[in-house]
Simulated assay, not measured.
Amino acid sequence: MAELLTIGDLARRTGLSISAIRFYEARGLVQSLRSSGNQRRFLRGDIRRLSFILIAQRVGLSLAEIETELVALPQSRNPTRADWQRISTRIHGRLEERIALLQRTRDRLGGCIGCGCLSLDTCALYNPADRAAHGGAGPRYLLGDEPGGY
């Protein structure tokens, strides 16, 4: 049988707290085995699973999105390079969308964001009569609508 890790070892290797690992276990994102003394033991591959969770959260994936991806991985063996490649391919588009949103935010935050506030002097130029409102609620231009597109 593959080398198993205690929950403390897993916490040290991932930088997560034991309570966070228990939380992810309760959500089904990692699965422990039980020793004869009923102590949790984890596969070494769970280091990768938990590391993926940390990175995915940092790049903006929701816990639901992370769960959707991890449910596709086998629980009974360590994930392979091909397993991770399939996840990478599936989330690539979502990451590209987030990158585009961050770039738009960086580039437009000092100007009109299409929120309909009409409080800045430039809003009268970028968003006259609150045209952005036709696209829906929220900061329309940061969400991807183009100024003057209404």
Rank of each mutant, 00 (worst) to 15 (best):
E3Y: 09
E3G: 08
L4N: 05
L5K: 04
T6D: 11
I7R: 07
I7E: 03
L10T: 11
L10W: 14
L10E: 12
R12D: 13
R13E: 14
T14V: 13
G15I: 12
I18A: 11
S19V: 11
S19R: 15
I21M: 14
R22M: 09
F23Q: 09
F23P: 02
F23Y: 15
E25Y: 06
E25P: 02
A26T: 12
R27E: 12
G28N: 08
G28L: 04
G28T: 04
G28E: 08
L29R: 04
Q31R: 13
Q31Y: 09
S32E: 02
L33R: 12
S35R: 05
S36D: 15
S36C: 12
G37W: 12
G37H: 13
N38W: 12
Q39I: 13
Q39P: 01
R40V: 10
R40I: 08
R44W: 03
R44Q: 11
D46S: 05
R49A: 04
S51C: 08
S51A: 14
F52T: 01
I53P: 00
I53Q: 02
L54T: 15
L54K: 15
L54N: 13
V59H: 01
G60A: 01
L61C: 00
S62G: 02
L63S: 03
A64E: 13
E65N: 04
I66W: 00
T68Q: 06
T68V: 04
E69V: 02
E69W: 02
V71H: 10
A72W: 04
A72I: 02
A72H: 10
P74S: 14
P74C: 06
P74H: 07
Q75V: 13
R77P: 00
R77S: 03
N78W: 00
N78I: 02
N78C: 02
P79R: 02
R81H: 07
R81M: 05
W84D: 05
Q85I: 08
R86N: 10
R86C: 02
I87G: 06
I87K: 07
T89Y: 10
R90Y: 04
G93V: 10
L95C: 05
R98K: 03
I99D: 00
L101K: 01
L102V: 07
T105D: 03
L109C: 11
L109Y: 15
G110F: 10
C112S: 09
C112M: 06
C115F: 05
L118K: 14
D121H: 14
T122Y: 12
C123N: 05
C123A: 14
Y126E: 15
N127F: 08
P128V: 03
P128Y: 07
A129Y: 08
R131T: 09
A132G: 04
A133V: 08
H134Y: 07
H134F: 06
R140H: 08
L142Q: 01
L143A: 05
L143Y: 02
G144M: 00
D145G: 09
D145Q: 10
E146N: 01
E146F: 04
P147N: 05
P147L: 08
G148H: 07
Y150D: 07
